[in-house]
C-alpha cells in the first residue's frame, strides 16, 4: 500500500517537474512573440471558417498559448510568410514543402483513409461522357488550382510531359483558381473543360456539398503522393515547441474534442513521417528542373 503510494507520489513529482520544465522552456523559446502563428493554405476546404475557429480554440486551450491561424489565398503567400519568418507552423501542400525544405521541417503528416497519402484527380463535367484522360484534353480549357499545388498543377503537367507533349501549349487555355474547391466549381459550371484537384478536397466536398461535386466526374487518378504536411519553421520554433506541437497533434485522436475536429477535417489523425514520403513529388519536380539536391 505504502509502496504504491510512494510510486504515485514520485510520479506526481515527475509530472510537476516535466510541466515546470515545459513551462520554462516554452516561456524562453516564445519570448519574442506571445502567440503561435499557424499558416493555413488552401490545401483543404479553405472556406470552412467555423471548423478552423474550432481547431484554433482547441489548440489554444491545449497549448496554453494563443494559436493564431493565418489564412492566405495562395500557397505562394503562405510560403512568402514563412520565408519572412512571419509563421511558426504551417499546413502546406507537399510541393511547397519541398520548395521550403531547407526552411521548414516536418511536424506531422495527416492520415487520410488511414494513410499519409492522397492523389490527384482529373475531373471533367459530368455531362462530358467521352473524356478518358489527359490524352482527350488537347486544345481544351483547363483549370489549375495553384502554381504551388502538386495535385493541382505539378501532377497534371507531369502527366502531359510524360505523354511527350508540352504542358505549356497542350491546352487551349489554362487558368488558376487558387483553390482546389474552385477548380471543382470551374469544371462544374462549364468555365473549364477539365481540372486537376486533390482527392482529399474532392472527396470531402462530396460529403459536404454534393450539389457541386455531382456536376463533375473523375476520369483519372494519379498514383499516391505524400499527404500535405504540417511543418514548423526551423529557426522560429524551438525544439521543445516543435515536440509539444507534434505531441499535441499526435494525441488529437485520443480525446473526444480532437476526434470531432479530425472528423470535421475528414482526417483519421496524424503521423510522424520522414521527408522520403515525398520522393514521388521530388521525381516530378526533377522532371521540370525544379529540384536540386542540397
Amino acid at each position: 500500500m505504502n509502496m504504491l503510494q510512494n510510486r504515485n507520489n514520485r510520479r506526481f513529482l515527475q509530472v510537476i517537474v516535466l510541466f515546470l520544465t515545459l513551462f520554462v522552456l516554452s516561456g524562453v523559446s516564445l519570448a519574442d512573440h506571445e502567440h503561435v502563428r499557424f499558416g493555413v493554405t488552401p490545401t483543404f476546404l479553405h472556406d470552412q471558417h467555423q471548423l478552423l475557429a474550432k481547431w484554433q480554440l482547441y489548440l489554444t486551450k491545449r497549448l496554453g498559448r494563443k494559436v493564431e491561424f493565418i489564412q492566405r489565398d495562395s500557397y505562394q503567400e503562405t510560403m512568402d510568410l514563412m520565408r519572412l519568418n512571419q509563421l511558426d507552423f504551417a499546413w502546406v501542400s507537399d510541393y511547397p514543402y519541398l520548395h521550403l525544405r531547407d526552411l521548414v521541417r516536418l511536424v506531422v503528416v495527416p492520415l487520410y483513409h488511414g494513410k499519409p497519402a492522397y492523389r490527384s484527380y482529373l475531373i471533367v463535367s459530368s455531362k462530358d461522357k467521352t473524356t478518358r484522360g489527359y490524352e482527350d484534353l488537347r486544345g481544351k480549357i483547363f483549370a489549375f488550382a495553384d502554381p504551388y499545388s502538386n495535385t493541382g498543377y505539378l501532377s497534371p503537367r507531369f502527366e502531359i510531359k510524360k505523354m511527350g507533349e508540352d504542358p505549356e501549349s497542350y491546352f487551349l487555355k489554362t487558368f488558376f483558381t487558387w483553390s482546389h474547391r474552385k477548380v471543382i466549381e470551374a469544371v462544374a459550371s462549364g468555365l473549364a473543360h477539365a481540372g486537376s484537384v486533390e482527392s482529399y478536397v474532392w472527396d470531402t466536398l462530396v460529403k459536404v456539398e454534393p450539389q457541386i461535386s455531382n456536376n463533375t466526374r473523375i476520369v483519372w487518378q494519379s498514383p499516391e503522393y505524400g499527404f500535405p504536411p504540417l511543418v514548423a519553421h526551423r529557426l522560429n520554433v524551438q525544439e521543445s515547441d516543435f515536440l509539444e506541437m507534434q505531441k499535441l497533434l499526435m494525441e488529437m485522436k485520443n480525446d473526444p474534442q480532437g476526434r470531432e475536429i479530425l472528423a470535421d477535417l475528414d482526417l483519421d489523425g496524424f503521423s510522424i513521417q520522414k521527408p522520403d514520403l515525398y520522393q514521388g513529388v521530388v521525381e516530378m519536380m526533377r522532371e521540370f528542373g525544379e529540384y536540386s539536391a542540397p
Binding site: A143, F175, F176, A186, S189, L191
Partner: peptide, 12 residues
C-alpha cells in the same frame, strides 16, 4: 492580368 477565375467570380 488575364485572371479568368477572378473575372468569373465577379461576373457570377
Amino acid at each position: 492580368h488575364g485572371d479568368v477565375w477572378r473575372a468569373f467570380e465577379i461576373v457570377r
